[in-house]
Amino acid sequence: MTEGQILLESFLQALAAGLLIGAIYGLMCVGLAMIFGIMRVINFAQGDFMMLGMYVAFFIFTGFGIQGVFGSYVGPYVAIFLMVPFLFAFGYAIHRLLITRVTGIRTVGMEGEGHYAQLVLTLGIALVLQNGGQILFGSQLVSIRTPLSSVAWELGPFWGDFVSVFLNKGRGIAAIFSVAVILGLWLLISRTRLGRSLRAAADNPEASTYVGIDVDRAYRTAFAIGTSITALAGGLLATNYPFHPFVGLEYVIVMYAGVVLGGIGSTIGAFWGGMAIGLVQQLSTLVIPMQLQNATIFVFFLLIVVLRPQGFFGRISERT
């Protein structure tokens, strides 16, 4: 094997890994885009909603006989999808009880139109979830690993039997699920009455009221969908990576980077944004030390916001 072939192989391997993890990041970002993009609410606790989803899926998997009924191959995915309604309800309740107090009409006249309040409120929620998680779940690492995560498909070999790319089956299936969910969500948003009312509420809340849309409820629904989508992404991530109560912190920036990159207000753009983040993260490992992987994401994020704050897929420019 020549040096060039080694280089090519590691490049292709990083590319494949980036695409797979990027699909999950993309799903995560779409969840945040529903909240940040539609309602312009900075939700600091989005990563912790994801963490909660991971634990709920974990307990459904281990505690409700799912593992026994569906086995360890299918079981994790069943548990992850069963978790979604719980997180939907959780998001709905959080919005109803807390978020609604610092958004919309009540924020008129508040400092920074309530942004201060939103930031700090969600920071408080994040602290409660992280530390409450530590109390309830302990701080040791757990996972919903499937046996698939330790086997891989081999693509290739190409170029004279030397270069081949391995796709981890667990991550591959997670990526496929991510893309499928995105497609479903896209259909929901673009084709249904509900989706149309959500987009209308995001576009022009006042006119939405005039056509008979309950804007408060639309926002609440968007918040709940966003929460459960990100949680779903977390669950899929947990089939490959172990997690702990503070896992949310690691992904909050990934999510915001993806949403900004995709263009605020564009739900589908957020998916491509997350994909780009996954690729940058994996490809950067070719030239930058592993430990700096996350630092790379942050620097990349800074470059995006400073150079192209409207994102790459932004359709609606940020309203001032």
């Binding site: 149309r196 987009r199 576009d203 022009n204 006042e206 006119a207 939405s208 056509v211 008979g212 609606i316």
Partner: peptide, 17 residues
């Protein structure tokens, strides 16, 4: 006050909400 990022037909459909 239209819904700027929705198409004309979608605007009308929203009228029929």
């Amino acid at each position: 006050q239209v819904f700027p990022s929705l198409s004309v037909i979608e605007n009308l459909e929203l009228g029929a909400y």
